[in-house]
Nucleic acid binder design. Sequence first.
DNA 1: GTCTATAACGGGATAGAC
DNA 2: GTCTATCCCGTTATAGAC
Lengths: 209, 209
Amino acid sequence: MKKIKTRDRILDTSLTLFNCVGEPNVTTLLISDELEISPGNLYYHFKSKGDIVEELFGRFEAEMLDLLAVPEDADISLDQNGFFLHLMFETVARYRFLYQDLVNVLSRYDQLQARFKRLLKKKTTAFQVICESFRRQGMMEINGEELESLCEQLTLTSCYWSSFDTLSHLEDRESVDPGRGVYQMMHLVLPYLAPGEQDEVRLMSRDYL
Amino acid sequence: MKKIKTRDRILDTSLTLFNCVGEPNVTTLLISDELEISPGNLYYHFKSKGDIVEELFGRFEAEMLDLLAVPEDADISLDQNGFFLHLMFETVARYRFLYQDLVNVLSRYDQLQARFKRLLKKKTTAFQVICESFRRQGMMEINGEELESLCEQLTLTSCYWSSFDTLSHLEDRESVDPGRGVYQMMHLVLPYLAPGEQDEVRLMSRDYL
DNA sequence: GTCTATAACGGGATAGAC
DNA sequence: GTCTATCCCGTTATAGAC
């Protein structure tokens, strides 16, 4: 029955608020209010609001780097790929505040910019490694130019899908539906797969609708 | 030799600044400073900063609606489609500040949200109309489920490509390269085109690299 | 139409008691 | 570790002279 440290509670609550109403709209007062602690107490644990953002980014970065460590020479199955996409979207969704106002956030905490770009690059590389693996296994046929275009498209979609989705489908359904992005990612790859694999992915992707 | 009205100069300068450093980072003082007029003068022409944003949005909306009025039953050629994409990316680039901090901007000027969503829907519909036209002309083969997925993907890409591009390729090249988005859009459609049309689009898309 | 001066407000951050 | 009180500053917006 150990009680959670205030410092961690601040981080958790901040993350929730950032995701809900957007980081720029969350004041330090709102955070401390929500936690029912004083603003002064918050500043005892973090010397600035930026520090909170940076620590949250650090967690995000660590999780992503961990996830993106895809083995170069392994034979990756369609199932493994689906699982990988699933985890990635799950992680992005948990830190979606970063993506919702990307330019704004990165401009105010400028040391994050380089680190974010590094992540982007690693993402694209990971997709390339996966596609190469598919190609080696005879499951995919694609030329170099299209491969590059596809992997950039996958990176873009992995970043922005959830923002786009919540924005464009707010009326239709109310569940946040994190899986729809995975569906979309699979459909990007679909045309380049061999016929048998196409059917398999079509079936898999249904689960995410 | 008619001199430009201050009101319009305010709008133009605001747009430039918004695009450069992001709308949230642009204060009314910065705008008036840049124009070498007093803050009071600015507030003589616009009753609030929000009014400037809304008027700029109005211009954007009008241009987009004009562009998106695609005739339902026309036979659209690949060239026409390329031209359409070109114009769309050009327009989006001119008002890119809206997209760079979308959630933030829409949350602070909430009457814009509904109008923005309407635009999104119209965009997707326009892409559907174009694809249907291609299909009718025997230039494209695609089933209903994939058509929907593709058109959403096109809409997403048309919104976020330029932000993504400036973000991820800042080191490599310094030109802002608005055409790369068109290239990417064409490559999304490519796999669903008939072989002859594929070659044509491949050639066309090169111009945008 | 344009200016200067200033009010009004809000958010980030600190000092010092407990 | 936590609180209250308060400072400081940037930003929006207005008042009133020219």
